[in-house]
Design a protein around this nucleic acid. Sequence first.
RNA 1: GGGUAGGUUGAGCAGGUGGUGAGCUCCGCUGACUGUAGAUCAGCCGUCUUCGACUGUGGGGGUUCGAUUCCCUCCCUGCCCA
Length: 394
Amino acid sequence: MTEPASTFRGRASRYDVLVPPPGDGSTRARLGRLELSHGVVETPQFMPVGTNATVKALDPTDIAATGATIILANTYHLYLRPGHERIARLGGLHRFMAWDRPILTDSGGFQVVSLGDLRVIDDDGATFRSHLDGSLHRFTPEHAIAVQEALGSDVAVAFDQPVAPSSAREHVAEATERTHRWAERCLAAHRRPDQALFGIVQGGLEPDLRAASTAFIAGLPFDGICLGGLAGDETPEQRDATLEVAVPVLADDPRPRYLMGLGSPADLLEAVHRGVDLFDSVLPARVARNGQLWIPGGRLNIRNRRFLDDPEPVQDDCPCPLCRSFSRAYIAHLFRADELLAYRLATCHNLTFTLDFMVRIRAAIRSGTFPAVMPELRLRAGRTSGREVAEKSA
RNA sequence: GGGUAGGUUGAGCAGGUGGUGAGCUCCGCUGACUGUAGAUCAGCCGUCUUCGACUGUGGGGGUUCGAUUCCCUCCCUGCCCA
């Protein structure tokens, strides 16, 4: 392998950019290698979400078979149940969930938005009312770090205050300021030497706030830069524009860039093109559980009646356990019968599709064909909403 | 054959003892879902020219201004007794 274009050595990570953007301005996509305590992650990469120390419906063997090399788990949920201290006593999160590859923990910041009615926020932190039993819980930057250190993830993430992209400018500004102060506190609180720590940029869709936030977070000694507050209610155009503002600020920064929450293949492609290295999202797994299967060029709503008689596999060339052994008719039947196997097979498939899509992106970057193959990859990704565009012959 | 309880929109039900029965749950159809309070949620789900109109309470007949309701008769189903 040739010399990396850049290398970043963090406290518990190393990031090599193996293939930098071409320099002709045609794309900011790059190929990288992120070394963490439990293994190596090639970038651009997608992380399946395993909030409760499980990627819903899958066991670690299934997860690995999808091609995933790193997964995300959630600090807030694991703090509430079963408790981070219990997980620590039981040997840490990797051992607890029997996943020996890298894990990134989200800080609980997202629950500041997602648990809207159940939390009160102030400058020092956030108070949550548990969605499980209604009890009160206090989260501060220091506490979010302590919990993540107890869990022992490869990558911890700073506690932040995301806001809906459509929020008013004053609200965005306030949350962004607060996120900056909390970022500094997270850095000051962090001790664990075998755990990397990523900082989170906010700034909403306001170009000046987003640029300033990116510069501020990049100015701190984090091991990676998360772009937060996206993958919400913004339009794809607004998201692209925001990336065009943020990524150039990081142009000479050797650290990995992680866009939090993005998950549809079409969205991933556009964000890679604009310079993002890492992603996570519940989307492939959630829509799978809800009966939507992703295939090249589109999607199948497998609950539709017509699939009950369809003997074809969901996707011919897919190596997942669903496509390898079963027909569309079978998975359609499982969904209608509310059989648990439906959720496992569907989740395996969508994650396999998504991670294979990332493989294709990386291969194109490696071979220097990346910007050129985008139309082809867009076609494969299909539309992110609306009716399916690809239909096998009946 | 006798007795008894029933027959309501694909299924299962609710309701209704003379004055406008389209209400629920399934099923079905279509959407949505992006750092997971989500194996979830929303809309539709008799017909039509669908901000409204029409039809519909097993069939037929009767009483009545008006019947799902009262009367007659027939059919069907469950249960009990022969």
